[in-house]
């Protein structure tokens, strides 16, 4: 069967597919074991993180290589607020998002004078500073020992103290974030962001305030990272400096790009891809990283726009397009 047929059928029965997916995710924890639920929860957390990164990277075209640091700011903010001040979960959760967005604002505002690569250098610098603070400002962050004993999430007296309950909590947050971001990118702001991404001079010439839009996207994206961090902190019950390394930032970027730039569902697909793939190739032991690398290369070569990405990012279209045009040409040849 041709790929196109599958795609057309999927688009035709979109609503049915979404309902089926919902039901599958809701049933999933009831029928699976601890390990699978943990993987599922990881997918949920990374989905939130990647959706935030997608807004920054895929919709506004800014390269953020410090996403893990923002994730860490959220996690630490939530952890310290709940451990030191005994604040309820919902307060910590929102505060984590707001604090992270504030940090994001502080970082985004000065560096938007210049081009994208400078922003990504600043995010790397920020990630370095953040790690240094985590390790050295012991009176606040307890240094390399991390912050243990974070209470589980609690909403209206209901404690999310088992992995299954946490899974549902995260799923709920993923759905809310998805709906909000999906509506945002369909709105006037979203169209402005995409115009900025495609051509910022053109965007400013039609009256879009490029800098304000970029800062807004950065703040919303980092807000997502902050709430993802908060969920992670309350789920694991411990935060330490080793969770928020540069590799983690790169992982989020990989999820974005393999999932497909400029596609919110792509963010979730990418997150699922990069959480599930390492689990599948785990038996390869030392060869794991390399095989993961080969898979990444092949993905990019066959589909440069990523799994769900828009064709605009693909350039010449990679091998997939080459094969397709080859087949088309063969079809057109007259039968002798």
């Amino acid at each position: 069967m041709d790929v196109k047929v599958i795609k057309d059928t999927a688009v035709k029965h979109k609503r049915l597919l979404i309902v089926l997916l919902f039901v599958a995710v809701i049933i999933f924890p009831l029928v699976s074991s601890g390990m699978a639920i943990r993987v599922g929860s990881n997918i949920m957390i990374y989905s939130i993180l990647t959706m935030g990164a997608m807004l920054i990277c895929g919709y506004t075209g800014m390269l953020n290589q410090g996403m893990a640091a923002f994730y860490g700011v959220g996690a630490y903010a939530s952890a310290l607020l709940s451990v030191n001040f005994d604040l309820p979960f919902i307060v910590c959760f929102l505060a984590a998002g707001l604090i992270t967005a504030g940090v994001g604002l502080l970082i985004a505002i000065p560096c938007l004078r210049v081009e994208t690569d400078f922003l990504s250098l600043i995010t790397i610098a920020f990630a370095n500073i953040f790690t240094a603070i985590l390790n050295n400002w012991t009176s606040l962050t307890r240094g390399p020992a991390g912050v243990p004993g974070i209470p589980p999430a609690e909403l209206f007296g209901f404690k999310f103290n088992t992995p299954v309950r946490n899974f549902y909590l995260m799923f709920g947050v993923v759905v809310i974030v998805y709906v909000i971001l999906h509506n945002l990118i369909k709105s006037r702001i979203g169209r402005a962001l995409q115009a900025v991404r495609d051509n910022d001079i053109g965007a400013s010439s039609v009256g879009i305030n490029v800098n304000n839009n970029k800062v807004l996207a950065f703040a919303i994206g980092t807000f997502c990272a902050g709430i993802a961090g908060s969920l992670m902190a309350h789920f694991i019950g411990f935060v330490g400096p080793t969770n928020f390394t540069f590799d983690e930032s790169l992982l989020v970027l990989q999820m974005c790009i393999i999932g497909g730039l400029g596609s919110m569902p792509g963010a979730i697909v990418g997150a699922a891809f990069f959480v599930i793939m390492p689990e599948i190739i785990r038996p390869l032991a030392v060869y794991r990283v390399g095989v993961g690398g080969v898979i990444m290369i092949l993905c990019m070569l066959f589909r440069p726009q990523g799994i769900m990405g828009s064709r605009a990012f693909a350039g010449k279209g990679g091998f997939q397009e080459k094969i397709r045009s080859f087949l088309r040409r063969r079809h057109q040849q007259p039968v002798a």
Binding site: L63, I257, P304, G315, K316
Partner: peptide, 10 residues
């Protein structure tokens, strides 16, 4: 020819 983030990942 693709977006410059693509060769970065490959």
């Amino acid at each position: 020819g693709a977006s410059r983030m693509v060769p970065m990942i490959s």
